[in-house]
């Protein structure tokens, strides 16, 4: 069985080389890489600094006086508690939050969205300059810097690009390929050999997973994304689970169509509704409430957590089960359609 699955997977990859699918898959990471570079180049820094302070926090009195005196460049907003301050920061209303650090009311921890951004450097330099002007010391009030997310816009956009890649393989490439094999009677020809229906299906899904992993690997190599081994394995597990689920769904969509043209149309009809709610869930309340009901969210949310917040498979056991379950159901439906030579 494994032998036939390998033969057919290699055959599918050879077709991908012939019909330029592989170039498409490799082009997208390059396109994303260039797009991300342009995003970074266009990052503008607002000269005004918006700092949040906690109403109940005990800050160095000299720091409070100095910050108030520098109200031309530093705008201070008081927050009721730490959670409210974090929300305020994440929603983009502020540039950083100062939280008392230790018990002596001498130091603060600076919470920022991104540690290595120009904005963070500006905040730290401005506050250090104020302190130097006051008592000749620097690097004293700010004892630590904590980023909310590990990195900036580049990394924040990565999960969306990865979701786009996985859905593209699942709903654009695979349905058209399956429908083509049906339309040109190539699948019927293959079923004239001792290959099992399940072997053909597994080969198609393996092909989808290989395309997904290949494209994601290239994208991460181009963006120099550093992984620990454990984190990489967690990420790979979700890539494989997502690749399996959406490839299986794509094969099923291909079986529902008689021609390549109808498969492309139906594929796009699945592609956009699966992409947009998940990718835009963080920016819209209605989409945020809809997204958890969309299968792509079970892939997007864990990948986002693994890439940006250090999450792992253990944090999303139901999501990975949902992906595998949906994939198995789709494969079962495809198997039944194949056995009955549906629209062949």
């Amino acid at each position: 069985m494994i032998r036939n699955v390998i033969i057919m997977t290699l055959h599918d990859l050879a077709i991908a080389c012939q019909n330029k699918t592989l170039f498409l898959i490799l082009f997208i990471p390059v396109f994303v890489f260039v797009a991300l570079q342009l995003v970074d180049e266009n990052e503008a820094v607002d000269p005004n600094i918006r700092i949040g302070l906690l109403e109940q926090g005990s800050y160095p009195p000299a720091m409070l006086t100095t910050l108030e005196a520098a109200n031309a460049t530093i705008v201070v907003t008081w927050q009721s508690n730490e959670a409210a301050a974090m929300q305020w920061l994440k929603e983009g209303h502020g540039d950083g939050v100062l939280i008392p650090h230790g018990t002596a009311a001498q130091h603060c921890a600076l919470i920022v969205l991104e540690k290595t951004s120009l904005k963070t450097v500006t905040i730290v330099e401005s506050i250090n300059a104020l302190q130097r002007a006051l008592d000749g010391k620097s690097n004293y009030w700010i004892a630590e810097i904590h980023p909310v997310q590990e990195s900036g816009l580049q990394r924040q956009m990565l999960p969306t690009w990865i979701l786009m890649l996985v859905l593209m393989v699942g709903f654009i490439i695979l349905p058209a390929q399956v429908a083509e094999e049906k339309e040109k009677r190539l699948l019927l020809g293959l079923l004239q050999t001792p290959i099992r229906e399940t072997e053909w299906l597994l080969a198609k899904v393996s092909y989808g997973i290989i395309l997904v992993v290949l494209a994601a690997t290239l994208l991460h190599l181009l963006t120099a994304f550093d992984f620990s081994i454990a984190r990489g394995l967690n990420y790979l597990a979700f890539l494989i689970a997502g690749g399996f689920c959406f490839s299986a769904l794509g094969v099923c969509v291909g079986f529902l169509c008689r021609t390549q043209a109808s498969a492309r149309t139906l594929g796009v009809l699945f592609y956009l509704p699966l992409l947009l709610p998940s990718a835009l869930a963080d920016f819209s309340k209605p989409l945020h409430s809809v997204a958890p009901w969309v299968p792509s969210y079970q892939f997007y949310q864990p990948v986002k957590s693994i890439l940006l917040q250090g999450g792992g498979v253990a944090d999303f056991p139901l999501d990975i089960l949902a992906l595998l379950g949906a994939g198995i159901i789709a494969l079962f439906l495809s198997y039944q359609l194949m056995r009955h030579r549906w629209l062949m």
Binding site: I7, A14, Q18, N19, K184, R185, L188, Q192, T193, P194
Partner: peptide, 27 residues
Amino acid sequence: VGFVPEVPNLFECFSVEYNLSLFARLF
């Protein structure tokens, strides 16, 4: 059974040898 359809259902983007080899491997 060997079945030859009216319109040959061969993998057109591959060579004659590849088409025969693929089926030989599966058989």
